[in-house]
């Protein structure tokens, strides 16, 4: 009990710093996810037009996902140095797979009869994409973005190790100083942040689901 109370006091005492790091944390992951959307969505659309290319791109992205994040950060230091850009780059690569994959499967999942009807009525490829495929794939694509964001918020704590700051810096300091309070000061906000983002994006997902398809 006493440790809880003392954590709360400890936490409140560092609130300004916590908020500061939360903002950094969000800005790193937000930037990474944003770039991943900008590149992953077009790529996901592009590969629906060619099955062979799709196979290659998806397996490359899959392999990237299997590299331990800690190792990934280390391996990239010679190229990008330490700090924010490196963190954003690695997080971006992690976010890429769920976004490409869900864009691809979302569009592939559109019923053939709808694309056939669309084409038969004289839609151009661009119209088919914007009027039929994208609106129908949007909920699935959004789910991919949501997964990417939540994974990234967790992984971004490790980025503190390579000097990118964020909520992870409390955790690593806590570990080296043997202070559970300090570790919790980083871990609890990171968890709350992940849950909050997940909840908000879940709402966006529902909101983006076309009206005729909401159950």
């Amino acid at each position: 009990m006493t440790s809880n109370v003392s954590f709360l006091e400890f936490f409140i005492g560092r609130l300004p710093e916590v908020l500061n790091q939360t903002v950094r944390h969000l800005s790193i992951t937000g930037t990474a996810v944003f770039i991943a959307i900008m590149i992953g969505v077009p790529l996901g659309i592009l590969i629906t037009r060619n099955r062979q290319v799709a196979k290659v791109i998806l397996s490359v992205a899959n392999v990237m996902q299997t590299i331990p994040s800690l190792a990934f950060f280390g391996l990239m230091i010679p190229f990008l140095g330490i700090g924010r850009p490196l963190a954003i780059f690695v997080l971006f690569l992690y976010a890429l797979l769920p976004i490409i994959k869900n864009t691809y499967t979302g569009i592939q999942g559109v019923d053939d009869s709808l694309t056939e009807a669309g084409r038969g009525m004289g839609m151009t490829n661009a119209q088919l994409l914007t009027m039929v495929e994208l609106p129908l794939a949007l909920p699935v694509m959004m789910a991919g973005i949501r997964i990417a964001a939540v994974i990234n918020i967790g992984t971004a704590t490790i980025a503190a190790l390579i000097g990118a700051q964020g909520l992870g810096s409390f955790i690593f300091r806590g570990i080296s100083m043997g202070s559970n309070n300090l570790i919790l000061t980083g871990a609890v906000p990171a968890a709350v942040l992940a849950l909050t983002v997940d909840f908000i994006l879940g709402r966006v997902e529902i909101w983006l689901t076309p009206k005729g398809m909401r159950k």
Binding site: S113, A117, G212
Partner: peptide, 22 residues
Amino acid sequence: PIELRRNIGYVIQKVGLMPHMT
């Protein structure tokens, strides 16, 4: 072909109504 298709009615077996449109 796009113009051609717009000037020919087309009805398919699975109907193919756009579920996101009224």
